[in-house]
Design a protein around this nucleic acid. Structure first.
Lengths: 191, 191
DNA sequence: GTAAAAGGAATGAACGTTCATTCCTTTTTG
DNA sequence: CAAAAAGGAATGAACGTTCATTCCTTTTAC
């Protein structure tokens, strides 16, 4: 039996509670209870609630990005790469609904706005697979000549909305619908 | 001088504070202060904070929908009606950023999820201009044969994302960009 | 090898703060 | 003057965080 890592328990409990009830529906006392841990113990691993929230965000995002890069067809056409990313992203969200809901909560909070501001306006050193794809798409005239931010909106706007609707039970996505949604997004960005 | 309607002052103060700082960054005491009103006075107009939040949502939404219907070209083609709605919607959000931010806060909260559940799954009696347009688009084979929910996502996903980016200062939309964004959304939903 | 001591992780009751709401007083209205 | 409206201090519940204490593991002493 592996040792039940307390930090991991805390992180899992926080993910569940925050994904389901939002930041303000997840008091530290309840997180501790669900993690099977004393309230004070959390503060041995995280300086405060903000820090817990931020670290959890980074972990969830990293896990997702790593998954997205597996099998990315670097050598195929722009269209095929676009469709691959859309499909894999949708599938990831559907099979990790807690992660999705957590990311949404984060993005729609002051934390997330600041975070995006840094990524979009700041000097973003990290290799960004999406940015690269869109820049190549525009410069090779395969995609519409629109600002990157708008191309992002045309792609992720629908994908996130559809994932949300699926997770909330407003629709049930199957392989065919996922593929057709990806194609429709492509129609939106392609020249 | 018109009488300074206290209810109106309260509603305005709440809109500003909640749009800028979220539900939890808008304590009743501060709303009262900004409205130039005693804390207890709010409770003469609204049963509690939830009620204030819900009523404010309904007012903001109604104001927006009314505006959207002005000059709606009922007789023109589906494409033209679609582009009209997209353009007017984007313009509305840009010129009413507080309203937009408030609507987003609401939609991303437990209130909003419940509200959408009713609208999408429940029997929705009210005349819904969007629903009508998409149903006509699908049945006349001008739009892709996809579930309504997905067509909604393909249209509003990008529009909301772009409006958010503009309001947060990540991009500056002008008439041309607004028009081209609308066209790109149309490319996404058209057959 | 066993017992004592040390170290530090874990605990949860207690604290101070914040907030929505209530309640009683004061002001306004007719 | 009576009734309604407004005001804002008081209230109590909920929350994040702290800290004195307990518990458990590891090290030391003999």
């Amino acid at each position: 039996m592996t040792k039940p890592d307390k930090r991991e328990e805390i992180v899992c409990a926080a993910l569940e509670l925050i994904a389901e009830h939002g930041f303000h529906g997840a008091p530290m006392a309840i997180i501790a209870e669900r993690a099977g841990v004393g309230a004070g113990t959390i503060y041995r691993y995280f300086e405060n609630k903000d820090e817990l929230i931020s670290q959890l965000y980074r972990e969830v995002e990293k896990k997702m990005v790593d998954d997205l890069l597996v099998g990315y067809p670097m050598e195929k056409t722009i269209r095929e790469r676009f469709l691959h990313l859309g499909t894999v992203l949708l599938r990831y969200f559907i099979s990790h609904p807690l992660d999705f809901r957590y990311l949404e909560q984060f993005h729609n909070s002051p934390y997330g706005v600041e975070y995006r501001r840094d990524r979009i306006l700041g000097k973003n050193e990290e290799l960004d697979i999406f940015r690269d794809l869109f820049e190549e798409g525009v410069s090779s005239r395969v995609m519409k000549d629109l600002p990157l931010v708008i191309l992002f909106a045309l792609s992720f706007g629908p994908l996130l909305a559809v994932a949300r609707d699926h997770i909330l039970g407003f629709i049930t996505l199957d392989d065919e619908l996922i593929a057709r949604t990806g194609e429709a997004c492509w129609d939106g960005v392609k020249q």
